[in-house]
Write a protein that binds this DNA or RNA. Structure first.
Lengths: 157, 157
DNA sequence: ATTCTAAGTTCACTTTTTGAACTCAGTTTT
DNA sequence: AAAACTGAGTTCAAAAAGTGAACTTAGAAT
């Protein structure tokens, strides 16, 4: 019926400008190799500057810069802590806003597992009380799990 | 009971090195302002180079570079298309691997809506057949919706 | 034959990243 | 008390990446 070699195109444009698009705004903050890696540390519970340095092999100036941005944006806080018989130090922790990135973080992990390392999962996600395995999914208002292929973006208001 | 000013810290380290962490691998490809914005275009169905240029106001060299990387990584394909009475042109489309980023994309959108623009949602996600509103959530193997706060990362195998 | 358009390249310039070395205040060691 | 150590940064010069404007190229339309 149709020419499968060279289909005709449906020409579409962005539904909203990048200035008012929440995902575009998020990309301005988080769209950076190191940002995502620093957040990974945060989700693993790593709090110290020097521990992050070693885990990530990130240049010091870059780490400082990223942590400052994360704190400015309210995604992390710099908190004093004091270990037994040690002096006061500072560690970085996720705020509520930062914790809310968990779904994004897990969705990205899930994608990486499937497409970047062929299904092996070196880190799993489980319910901390029941131990059940968890995954990220798209659900309806009535809590039905829905195939992402059925999702459609619509301009609102 | 405890000193709330300066709590003692729990010192933790990354569960896996960044070389074997799926999320870290993903960050090497997607961790870039423009990458995420180009993917946004793709999810909106924008296929043409010049349309993306206009939507994003991205420098041409940068767009070319990002599209090439996306194609190399199998996230997008460059496909010929031909509109009625027009010459053959090329457009960029998501592959299956690219479509699988939908959950990540939607999770990030959801986060941006909540924290970057205070709950306004200029773009909604609905089930294309039922019209029901959709959201990203964490679910168990038995399809129970689970609070992300209950999630725990565990080293596997 | 000239103009137009989509999709790039090229170029000079600015910004950002990088690795290595340096700082600095509080702590333990000698 | 002086010297060495630690955690958490700064500073610096070199390299890499991003930028805006102008140029290119192939095919189509005038």
């Amino acid at each position: 019926m149709s020419n499968t070699d060279k289909p005709t195109s449906v020409r579409r444009r962005a539904l909203v400008s990048k200035e008012e698009c929440p995902m575009a705004l998020a990309s301005q903050i988080l769209g950076d190799k190191w940002m995502l890696l620093v957040l990974r540390e945060a989700f693993y519970g790593v709090q110290r500057y020097d521990d992050m340095l070693q885990d990530l092999k990130i240049p010091r100036a870059t780490l400082t810069h990223r942590l400052n941005t994360l704190v400015e944006q309210n995604i992390m806080v710099k908190q004093p802590y004091q270990d037994a018989g040690d002096r006061t130090r500072f560690g970085y922790q996720l705020t509520a806003m930062g914790h809310d990135l968990a779904l994004t973080f897990l969705a990205l992990t899930q994608w990486g597992e499937k497409h970047l390392i062929n299904g092996r999962a070196p880190v799993g996600v489980v319910n901390r009380t029941t131990g059940e395995e968890l995954r990220v999914a798209l659900v309806s208002t009535s809590d039905e799990i829905t195939d992402p292929m059925l999702a459609r973006l619509v301009k609102q208001s």
